[in-house]
Design a protein around this nucleic acid. Structure first.
Length: 930
RNA sequence: GGGUUUGUAGCUCAGUUGGUUAGAGCGCGCCCUUCACACGGGCGAGGUCAGAGGUUCGAAUCCUCUCAAGCCCACCA
């Protein structure tokens, strides 16, 4: 239980009715203190003591939706800032991957909006072909139904029902993240507009010869019962066996030994290949071998692609089931014998003995058979890469079949050219290499899928279809031509036949995603949105889908619109668990962002996903991190609460304020520095850096120092000015709490018809470099040093916190401004009196500190033990001497003094003088102490 | 096999174009019921910047190599 970890002391503190604390923890039944949280009456205050996200986020979210803060105007191209949301799948719930995407994009978008840009952040969802079909099928299975039971039409209806539910759910969750997107332009990859655009694209590419149909070796997932593209195959190292099998030369007792990892495929062997230069096999080339079990006569062929060093140097050729074999088979005009069928079972071509056997059993049977007839030479352990389906993890079977392909070479060439021209860039830049290499080595993209859920190919066949599974079944009637058309043809344009059949396959999900940056804007119609918002300004997504998505968008965008679809590609890293592992269902280490939102608030979650993260680098997520960010949000809340309490009723946001004293001038300088630096970081897309800077300012400069320094005599106008701008600066990161606090400046009147003045629609502050005042910052540094030094001594000497002591400071050149800060110093250092003089006599019976050219004396007569003080001084002395030796070493180096820039040398000299002075002072002091 | 990233305090990470006595948060130790905040405040301990060379007056930062971890790509049966 939470309370069990609290110390005794903290519990005693809790005896005070501290409502806010108890709202956050459940009380154990055995709670040892008499305290009943139910009886606690909240103190009547305008602003709660602690920020409770759950009580505010809903209202604020609604306020944003009602005010349509995300709605883009769409008038001028010049001022447009466009980003389309990577569409979440309609398969399930929000996960941390979505959370980081939405957070980064929302930060970017809110910042740009505050900068006055006409921002379009276009939301949408993805029909996610295989993924969605799989979940719906799974659901049906629970009712004991298969998709075949329902039939295509009814099954698709089921999926649409599912889509409606999950689409609503995911959209709500997107809003919960604070995403300020333009819901009025929401799109779905499978809605009418997008489907028409997909058909249009397919037909165009076909007519240009960039889409074709061919029989090739493809990746077949026996579980999903569909073909998948090369990049959907995940290669994983697996331990297996290497089988050595002897093939005899026809009518002799000589033989060739081959090695294979998949002995069952030998049933489909059509040759054995060796390297032409391999002396071991030169004499065998052209000879005929007897394929064991099958007893087929197969030739020994020579091919340079054979690796002499692997295994025996002789390789069996099975064109139907291995990519390299398929190539070699094609070049040597070999037959291809399909022995493995689409369900992962052996076909009739494998022979009566093996037909119908699942692969694993077929392997056992083949191996046993070979062993029995004496052709199995040996079996050795062997690790190798095995392809798995990225959707269901089944082993992929390379199968030969007729599919539709996109000819990618010409598209990739355009993409590379456009990249070299500088049309778009990657953030971080290193992904450029990955992108260009992939483009250079690209292979054709298999786009047809044997699924039901998706864009059915706009393809018809005259008369009966050559069914992909078995091309032998081609019908004899009709002209058998292929008709590719945006609209359903009534008759065959070639022969007038009225009997047409539509291709049953659907398109790869990524085909429609690849068009997303422009189909969402109304393309292929030349809409106003398309004219205004295309190309997009930024594409933001995870680096794990560069090839799946980013590359395809670029290729298809260039081909279809003539322009690269976006100018910048920002790639974020993956969210991992605290140990750096990928989050996965099987590991059970997944963190539910919604649970985190419930517990800590959306703002805290957003900060956790951005602060201290850099683009392209993975991020470890842990609950202790989000807890820390929740604490920050609360800190800001309380700083604001203090400010509002100070400002009194009806606080006014102030646009300008005059500084009264050093702390005022200092905080203004620091504030301007912050705005300049944070804005600059934002413009570099360094969001993590900007967030850290803002956070640092709020927590340390503002709360720890400025508020404390000015509590006696707060400059109300300046306080208001600072808070207003802190809210603006932090708003992109933590929109909820800042919008809530903003309400105190611009109260929400539910009865009023006037639009509320929302922070989300306010302006980003302008900082000025000219207002960064180095002199003021240096002076303040001295003040802060004094306070820290005195606090440090107090702590070291165990002076009770309540006890006020005296201090004397000989300030030298700092005297003038220090005198003016005496009150602040007294307060923060808890002093009864403070004397500031230019210089003076050494003070006896006092603790002495020599820092920053100052002499600080704390007469603690009664507390002072000369021995302890001597020890302390000696420590200070050694430290100073060590530092001096470092500087001396530098200055003694003639190369340094002659070659380093003068200002560097000067500053070293100044440091030296200061340390020497310090050492002198400490030594004197030690003399006095004896 | 090729490519790439990372290695900085016990943990998670910052560290701009080379010039700091190397920083933050969490954790740890001591102290604090001061009325914005205990989801807080103060003070403190803790680091040969993975290792070895090199460039330079000067390297956590640039170069080379080594080691370790991760990721991506690749048709070695």
């Amino acid at each position: 239980m939470i309370l069990s970890i609290l110390s005794e002391k903290r519990l005693s503190h809790l005896n005070k009715p501290n409502n806010t604390y108890f709202r956050h923890c459940l009380l154990p039944l055995s709670f040892p203190y008499e305290y009943n949280p139910i009886t606690v009456i909240l103190p009547v205050k305008e602003i709660a003591k602690a920020y409770i996200p759950g009580e505010n986020e809903g209202d604020i979210s609604k306020r944003w939706l009602d005010s349509q803060i995300g709605k883009a105007v769409g008038k001028s191209k010049k001022n447009a800032f466009t980003i389309v949301m990577p569409p979440p799948n309609v398969t399930g719930a929000l996960h941390l991957g979505h959370a980081i995407t939405l957070t980064i994009e929302d930060i970017l978008v809110r910042y740009q909006r505050m900068q006055g840009k006409d921002v379009l952040w276009l939301p949408g969802t993805d029909h996610a072909g295989i993924a969605t079909q799989n979940v719906v099928e799974k659901q049906l299975l629970e009712k004991g139904l298969s998709r075949e039971d329902l039939g295509r039409e009814r099954f698709i209806q089921e999926v649409w029902k599912w889509k409606d539910i999950y689409h609503k759910r995911i959209s709500e969750q997107v809003s919960r993240m604070g995403a300020s997107c333009d819901w009025s332009r929401e799109a779905f990859t499978l809605d009418t507009a997008r489907s028409e655009a997909v058909n249009h694209t397919f037909v165009k590419l076909y007519k240009k010869g960039l889409i074709y149909r061919d029989t090739k070796l493809v990746n077949w997932c026996p579980r999903c019962q569909t073909v998948i593209s090369d990049i959907e195959v995940e290669h994983r190292e697996e331990e297996g066996n290497l089988y050595f099998i002897r093939y005899f030369v026809s009518a002799t007792d000589r033989s060739v030994c081959i090695s294979t990892t998949r002995p069952e495929t030998m049933l489909g062997d059509v040759a054995v290949a060796v390297h032409p230069d391999d002396p071991r096999y030169k004499e065998f080339i052209g000879k005929e071998l007897i394929l064991p079990i099958v007893n087929r006569i197969i030739p020994v062929i020579a091919d340079k692609r054979v690796d002499m060093k692997f295994g025996t140097g002789a390789v069996k050729i099975t064109p139907a089931h291995d990519p390299l074999d398929a190539e070699i088979g094609r070049d040597h005009k070999l037959e291809s014998i399909v022995v493995i069928g689409p369900h992962g079972r052996m076909t009739k071509h494998a022979g009566r003995r093996f037909k119908g056997l699942p692969l694993t059993e077929a392997r056992k049977a083949v191996v046993k058979y070979l062993d029995d007839i004496g052709n199995l030479e040996k079996i050795v352990k062997h690790t190798h890469q095995v392809g798995h389906c990225s959707r269901c993890d089944s082993r992929i079977e390379p199968l030969e079949s007729m599919q539709w392909f996109v000819k990618t070479k010409p598209l990739a060439e355009k993409a590379l050219k456009s990249y070299k021209k500088g049309d778009f860039e990657f953030i971080p830049g290193r992904f450029e290499k990955e992108f260009t290499r992939w483009m250079e080595e690209i292979r054709d993209w298999c786009v047809s899928r044997q699924l039901w859920w998706g864009h059915q190919l706009p393809v018809w066949y005259c008369k009966k279809v050559p069914i992909w599974k078995d091309k032998r079944k081609q019908a004899k009637e009709g002209c058998q031509r292929v008709i590719v058309s945006e609209k359903e043809p009534k008759a065959c344009p070639h022969c007038g036949n009225l009997s047409l059949v539509r291709d049953a396959d659907v398109l790869d999900t990524w085909f429609s995603s690849g068009l997303w940056p422009f189909t969402t804007l109304g393309w292929p119609k030349n809409t106003k949105d398309f004219k205004t918002f295309y190309p997009n300004t930024v594409m933001e997504t995870g680096y794990d889908i560069i090839f799946f998505w980013v590359a395809r968008m670029i290729m298809l965008g260039l081909e279809m619109t003539g322009k690269a679809p976006f100018k910048k590609i920002y790639l974020h890293g993956l969210v991992r668990d605290e140990k750096g592992r990928k989050m996965s269902k099987s590991l059970g280490n997944g963190i539910d962002p919604l649970e985190m939102i419930e517990k800590y608030g959306t703002d805290a979650l957003r900060l956790t996903l951005t602060v201290g993260s850099t683009p392209g680098n993975d991020l470890k997520f842990s609950e202790s991190k989000i807890e820390g960010q929740r604490n920050f949000v609360n800190k800001l809340w309380n700083a604001a609460r203090y400010t509002f309490l100070t400002l009194g009723k009806n606080p006014k946001p102030v646009a300008q304020a005059t500084p009264h004293g050093l702390p005022d001038r200092w905080i203004l300088s620091r504030y301007n520095r912050l705005v300049v630096e944070a804005t600059e970081a934002f413009d570099r897309y360094a969001f993590g850096e900007a967030a850290a800077k803002i956070q640092d300012f709020v927590w340390h400069d503002f709360c720890d120092w400025y508020l404390e320094l000015t509590k006696e005599k707060p400059n109300k106008k300046l306080l208001s000015y600072l808070l207003v701008n802190i809210l603006r600066l932090s708003h992109p990161f933590i929109p909820f709490v800042t919008e809530k606090l903003w309400e105190n400046f611009y109260p929400i009147n539910p009865k009023s018809k006037a639009k509320p003045k929302l922070l989300a629609l306010d302006k980003w502050p302008k900082g000025s470099k000219a207002k960064i005042n180095l002199k003021v910052e240096e002076e303040m540094e001295v003040v802060l040093t004094i306070i820290s030094q005195i606090r440090s001594v107090r702590s070291e000497m165990s002076v009770e916190p309540g006890r006020k002591i005296a201090a004397i400071v000989y300030a030298g050149k700092h005297e003038a401004f220090l005198k003016k800060q005496a009150n602040e110093i007294k307060k923060l250092a808890r002093l009864a009196s403070l004397t500031v003089k230019k210089s003076g006599k050494e003070i006896e019976n006092a603790v002495a500190k020599f820092e920053a050219g100052l002499e600080i004396y704390l007469p603690l007569a009664k507390l002072l033990d000369p021995k302890v003080e001597k020890k302390r001084l000696k420590n200070d002395l050694t430290e100073a001497q060590q530092y001096l030796s470092v500087i001396d070493k530098k200055l003694a180096n003639e190369d340094f003094t002659s070659r380093a820039p003068q200002n560097i040398v000067d500053s070293e000299k100044a440091k030296k003088a200061e340390v020497e002075e310090k050492i002198r002072k400490i030594e004197e002091r030690l003399k006095i102490l004896g």
